[in-house]
Design a protein around this nucleic acid. Sequence first.
DNA 1: ACAATATGCTCTTGATCCGAGCAAATGAAG
DNA 2: CTTCATTTGCTCGGATCAAGAGCATATTGT
Lengths: 370, 370
Amino acid sequence: MPTRATELLRVVHARPGVTRADAARLIGVGTGATTELVGRLGQAELLAEGPTAPSGARGRPTTALIPHPRGPLIAAASITHESWRVDVVELGGSILATAGEELAGRAGDEVVAALGAAVRRLRHEYGDRIRGIGIAVPGTVSRDLMLDASNLGWHDVDLAVAWPRAEIFVAGNDATLAASAESRRGMAVGAAVALHLRIEAGLGGAVVDGGKVLIGALGAAGEFGHMPFGDPAVRCPCGAYGCWGTAVDGSALARLLGHEPPRDLITYARRIITSPEPEPAAAAATVATALGRGIAGLVNGLDADLVTLGGLGVDLLAAAPEQLLTAYEAGLMSFRRAAPPPVVPALLGDDGPIAGAAEEAWTALLTRLV
Amino acid sequence: MPTRATELLRVVHARPGVTRADAARLIGVGTGATTELVGRLGQAELLAEGPTAPSGARGRPTTALIPHPRGPLIAAASITHESWRVDVVELGGSILATAGEELAGRAGDEVVAALGAAVRRLRHEYGDRIRGIGIAVPGTVSRDLMLDASNLGWHDVDLAVAWPRAEIFVAGNDATLAASAESRRGMAVGAAVALHLRIEAGLGGAVVDGGKVLIGALGAAGEFGHMPFGDPAVRCPCGAYGCWGTAVDGSALARLLGHEPPRDLITYARRIITSPEPEPAAAAATVATALGRGIAGLVNGLDADLVTLGGLGVDLLAAAPEQLLTAYEAGLMSFRRAAPPPVVPALLGDDGPIAGAAEEAWTALLTRLV
DNA sequence: ACAATATGCTCTTGATCCGAGCAAATGAAG
DNA sequence: CTTCATTTGCTCGGATCAAGAGCATATTGT
């Protein structure tokens, strides 16, 4: 078991503003130990106590546990296909400051350098309070923090430049981190096994089991787009045939409509999916069916109890809910059909990846604060 | 963090006979704390010290930590499609006694009753040393310990009868438990993410992430046979279409060869797979290809670094290794092809499920022994 | 016999946490 | 306004656990 102090910090992070008495009950300590704990964490400038709204019940009023005004902070960053952003996040997930700009077609190294400059400015402003950084990227990150984002044409981009020798440096795929955020502050709070799927240029996702994101042996788990749920005759850029991704992303829509694959697959796909014309709508319906069928297969195999959709998945669900859900239920094992795990849009939307970066970095930091 | 005593017991369970000095280094305590720990656990009749083979190196010789001769035990049971068995297992995994017999076509309730009688006899012999039971079954187990094994025609069989009101009662699917055993005492020791696949009457398996088996929201994870990697025209008994299981189990062989589906699919399939005739061999090769392709999809999605095969998967790998591995590598994402995660037979073979039952029950027990 | 090396034991110190008893702050009832 | 019930917070004594220093023990090598 982690120490009580860490447990208390985790509770306050998960539920900022929790009352002191509630927190004590949640971690199962008496009032004596609570006094000692809160005092110690207050001395360490980690927690502070604030007023509570009157509860109306009898009894001595309690206080709310909130982040200390001089407490530690985390820098959370996100790079998408069109912009980058850095937030300064305190215990509990509130954002104190933010910076960012459009990519404007710049190379990966330049973007990371610009992001690093923003981090330096924020560190100058907040000093040593900023203890680490988490970064969400639209690609894969190796153990030594080299980024590959084939969609952006970036290869071997050194993320460490954003904050060299940071004590805490967490980087991950945007879909993976969005899944993490969704499981802690989104729709998947309380789900035993949550599956998050995110369609952007490709199809990615992650499984969260008991609050822990499955990261894979190489940090490359969640590449569900490369499971062979699709047409075995279609070759995927990854080299394999029949990849699910080729049946649900923008390239599938272009193929169905006889279009040339456009440069910006995401914008193109969103336009097609939301188009009122019958031909694009039919293509979107076909793709929604392929998505539903694959989701069912994943739910069968992984026994998820909730599926959240991000990116274009949200648009597909909105545009062709019937086709998607019919294919989904038809693909479930019969014993699951009585109560199919819900398939819903992710609550955090486009903020999922950066929120997940903040969560993972905070999780890493919380194990070090005593 | 668990208490040091629990950590020490876990180390000794994972590596029985580990030297006292090595164990201390593994859990990171000094010699002083070790003296106190080993003394306390010896007093509690959990650990004993034995002689070590001379190391040849200088220095004061150390002792080996072994299970106490009057220490706690676990009953581990397994029900297969043809027999049942109970073992008495001590800390570290050694088997002290065993009992079992053929099913001989008996009903589920009778089999569980016979198993329960064997457990009672063993408890009479070993007394309160036997602290709990783990059972591996060829089917699904609900939270209230009701077993469904459609292959045996068993439904709503009450497993609790095997040991009513046992303090520790762990039951699970044979493939899931075999995966657990394989990750702790088999080929998958040290694997970050191990995928175990087991073909018997159907195709099941499990993922072990960092030593923890993914159990799913309903305890039904690992039903990879119902992911739609197969022919979308083939209907699965589960109600969906294109299930992978229908492309790799005995029914696939029967369909390819134009046979009536036989009653005992496992024996039938093993005969076909090992047949020297060209027609059965071609069918086996087709099935091996479908197996390899699906494994690649799972490795892509889950980022496993090792795949172990059990049941008929071992026979398929032996009969058509080239077809299986070619399809496997062709289905991998290109960046994985430089070093494809190995696909190997499980080390524990048919003992995997019962060994896994012992492991899971011991894991549950270790958290209670202080 | 003596040095070098590795390991085990004792004792002190400190951190953490629990629980009993008492104090404080509120709402409800008169 | 007073008193009681209720809930929460604080102080203090005691128990448990673990780290580390210093010394003791058991072996190999010279």
